[in-house]
């Protein structure tokens, strides 16, 4: 019998590489056949325990020589674009973790190549697959809020209270701090909800980190004219897990979306939605998945990527969307460097 499973290679065996490897190896429609990591013991941990996965030291080597149908890129950020380019050269569908790159400029050629080739690829902004944010998107797009007037959004986690170790805190390898690493999830959600951003004012602050920011505050002006702000930090207290809150105000109501709850207030009824408060909690919104490793959103994200591979087209979150988020972050850093003066988001 011909093996019809999509054969996947994993570049980078850190936390996210292992989660994707577990899901893509466990789902019915795919299996992991190769993996790459420069750390010898990480390789031997997986390679020594399972004989069915071919191990590589160098991920580009894996991309060029292993017999694969798709690649997951979960390396430090500075290696994302070179790996993506290696996949494009081989016409090999790829999934790349967020954020896309350290600076938008690094990815311009990649973006151009993908516009010309329309091959299967996807960028891992997984919060788009969290039930509550999916519901929030559905409500925003339904028009129930009427003309949207303003948006405020925060993303916080208690993660860093001393100088961090590892690539995330090295600006050359990571490209930036909390704004790029975690705030980018929020910017992705906001552009998904409200469309592109035209200009920003940004202020970033480092307290524990030497090279990257631990706090970031941005004022956003969307192309649609909606304005609002985003605040992000990984050095606030009392946030056991990453917590996102998005609040939108429109002429006809308010919408508050968090990681587990959606609260909608409407001045008057809209379709099946009643006037006053409409609330959905995590249980109301829960939908099961074929295999859950670390949260159903990761499975949905990987299933969406596999669909894109099968169809031979870009996935839900394509390069054009990811580069826009990157350009917003770049503009915010540029603005902060000139004390928060307004900065156009390049197109």
């Amino acid at each position: 019998m011909v093996d019809s499973k999509i054969k996947v290679g994993i570049a980078g065996l850190g936390k996210m590489g292992l989660v994707h490897a577990g899901i893509l190896n466990g789902l019915q429609g795919s299996r992991v056949v190769a993996a790459a990591d420069p750390s010898k013991w990480a390789r031997s941990a997986l390679g020594g325990l399972t004989s069915s996965v071919e191990m590589f030291t160098d991920a580009e080597d894996m991309i060029r020589s292993a017999e694969l149908d798709a690649v997951v890129i979960a390396t430090p950020v500075d290696q994302h674009v070179p790996m993506c380019m290696a996949c494009v050269e081989r016409r090999l569908p790829f999934f790349v973790e967020k954020p896309l790159t350290t600076q938008a400029g690094q990815a311009e050629e990649l973006v151009q190549q993908l516009r010309e080739r329309r091959m299967a690829h996807m960028v891992g902004y997984m919060t788009r697959y969290v039930d509550s944010f999916v519901k929030g998107h559905e409500l925003v797009r339904s028009g129930c809020l009427g003309q949207i007037q303003r948006v405020t959004a925060t993303i916080y986690v208690s993660q860093l209270f001393r100088r961090g170790k590892g690539w995330r805190y090295n600006k050359t390898l990571s490209g930036g701090g909390v704004l790029l690493s975690q705030g980018s999830h929020l910017l992705d959600l906001l552009t998904w909800y409200l469309g592109p951003v035209a200009r920003v004012n940004g202020r970033v602050q480092s307290v524990y980190s030497q090279e990257v920011e631990d706090f970031a505050h941005i004022f956003l002006e969307f192309s649609s004219g909606v304005t609002g702000w985003v605040d992000s930090s990984w050095s606030v207290r009392f946030r056991r897990m990453v917590e996102i809150t998005i609040e939108l105000q429109g002429v006809d109501g308010n919408l508050i979306v968090t990681d587990d709850t959606v609260r909608l207030y409407l001045e008057r009824g809209f379709g099946e939605l009643s006037p006053g408060w409409n609330v959905w909690n995590a249980v109301d919104l829960y939908r099961p998945v074929e295999l859950d490793i670390g949260g159903p959103q990761y499975t949905r994200e990987d299933v969406a990527f596999l669909d894109a591979v099968r169809m031979g087209r870009p996935g839900d979150i394509d390069m054009d969307q990811a580069i826009h988020v990157q350009r917003i972050v770049d503009a915010a850093y540029a603005s902060s460097a000139v004390n928060g003066a307004p900065e156009e988001v390049s197109t």
Binding site: G14, K15, Q159
Partner: peptide
């Protein structure tokens, strides 16, 4: 598990 998630964000899973 949160200890490992946060810790691996802070210094990398292997470290």
């Amino acid at each position: 598990i949160q200890k490992y998630v946060r810790g691996s964000n802070e210094k990398g899973l292997a470290n």
